[in-house]
Design a protein around this nucleic acid. Structure first.
Length: 270
DNA sequence: CACGAGACCTGTTCGC
DNA sequence: TGCGAACAGGTCTCGT
């Protein structure tokens, strides 16, 4: 589910609610949600710590505490919600923090793919991530040189979080459509000009996603409306907003992929 | 190194 | 209506 814009939206919405709150209790309802350390260590180690601030790195939400950092990856179906402590546990509740304002921060996750880490050294978990898309060090030239080093197909490469952190299936399809690049184009065939175009497209779709509070699709709804502005993603059979050609669905790297066969041609670009 | 298959999971939608 | 298949915003591991 959540990609960079959805995680950033959650961060911005929760930050004012959580900043300064003290953790008074912890509950682990599905043990595998907790990656490290053990439930026993977390339930004894977290209470008493205060939430200093919320951060984000790629698709990870970082809850910075007075001593540790809670790292949360929502994967496909995870969500974070605040609710009163007296409420009965929901069906998909996997983990929660009881706060000192009689509310709890719940990690809810139907598919159980999401993970939570608690660490004093978050870099150990985040060190493999590639650059943030909005990092000013990531210039078009830098991206061009990174692309030149591999013959991998563009889409699986952009989904590889060690190459670039934050893009998922939606925003990848959207960025490639905006940049008029075919998802199966070998990365090392991009020109500098195309790399510039791709970086601008990535920035644009992520920015618009954040501005619209992310995308809400399937049964996970958290108020975002970017789903109403998709150019290609999940628009199989509908006209391309640029040229009117019917959007096609293909599978690239085992992921459903949506393209305009007219705008996005490998041959167009050599 | 690059790619594909399979695993991890549950819920919804599609097709017969 | 019912039922199985396909599909879903992600990532890891393993085999070729």
């Amino acid at each position: 589910m959540p990609e960079l814009p959805e995680v950033e939206t959650i961060r911005r919405m929760l930050q004012p609610e959580l900043q300064g709150r003290k953790i008074v209790g912890v509950r682990v309802l599905w043990e595998r949600t907790l990656a490290t350390p053990s439930p026993a260590e977390v339930t004894t180690g977290l209470p008493g710590q205060r939430i200093v601030t919320l951060g984000r790195r790629g698709k990870y939400l970082l809850i910075e505490l007075t001593q540790d950092v809670l790292l949360i990856h929502l994967r496909m179906s995870g969500d974070l919600v605040l609710e009163p402590q007296h409420r009965e546990p929901g069906k998909h509740h996997r983990f929660w923090l009881d706060l000192d304002d009689d509310r709890r921060l719940v990690f809810s996750d139907a598919r159980k793919f999401g993970r939570v880490w608690v660490s004093a050294v978050p870099a150990e978990i985040l060190c493999k991530l590639g650059p943030e898309p909005f990092d000013t060090d990531l210039t078009a030239e830098v991206l061009y040189n990174k692309l030149k080093r591999t013959r991998r197909q563009l889409k699986p490469l952009l989904l590889d979080q060690t190459f670039l952190a934050g893009l998922g299936n939606i925003y990848c399809d959207e960025a490639l459509h905006l940049a008029r690049l075919h998802p199966q184009m070998p990365a090392n065939r991009l020109t500098l000009e195309q790399s510039e175009c791709l970086l601008r497209a990535i920035h644009q779709v992520l920015q618009e996603g954040i501005r619209r509070n992310g995308a809400s699709i399937d049964w996970v709804y958290r108020g975002g409306e970017f789903q109403n502005y998709f150019r290609a993603y999940q628009r199989t059979g509908h006209p391309c907003p640029v040229c009117g050609t019917i959007i096609e669905r293909l599978v690239v790297g085992q992921r459903g992929t949506h393209i305009c066969p007219n705008c996005q041609q490998i041959s167009l670009t050599g």
